[in-house]
């Protein structure tokens, strides 16, 4: 088994690069905003991938932590060391959850700004909006 999920990291890299490209190169204000969001998604994917452990188990779905578990399922509870060395890392998931919330609020503010700017300038082109300054 590979030590980490290469495909997942590559996808994250593609997302980040695409997002940066859209943010820096594209003229449409909505495309810029989508690009900004893609970067955030890529970073979230990196965080999730960090939590992966080959052949490990996920604490949240282990059978003896289940609500319907009978006392007999606790009889072969893992030793702490064995559990700690095999469990996947669940802290990044919590971080990703927080970041998704922040990303959503930032996205909504940016979209609201895009609406306001569109109403003012009647164009979606950032170049046209930002020229004629002063």
């Amino acid at each position: 088994m590979e030590p980490f999920q290469v495909g997942s990291f590559l996808t994250a890299g593609v997302l980040i690069v695409t997002g940066l490209w859209a943010l820096l190169m594209m003229d449409n204000i909505l495309k810029k905003i989508i690009g900004a969001n893609l970067i955030g998604d890529g970073v979230n994917l990196v965080l999730i991938t960090i939590g992966y452990r080959p052949g490990g188990f996920i604490p949240e779905v282990m059978h003896h932590f289940h609500a319907t578990a009978t006392p007999s399922s606790y009889s072969h509870l893992l030793e702490f060391g064995e559990f700690a060395s095999n469990a996947s890392y669940s802290l990044p998931f919590a971080l990703v959850l927080t970041n998704i919330v922040i990303g959503a609020s930032t996205l909504s503010v940016m979209l609201a700004l895009a609406v306001v700017l569109y109403n003012k300038y009647h164009t979606l082109s950032v170049h046209k909006m930002f020229e004629g300054e002063d």
Partner: peptide, 8 residues
Amino acid sequence: IFGTISGA
């Protein structure tokens, strides 16, 4: 916009 880049 740049806040998103730097935050990421």
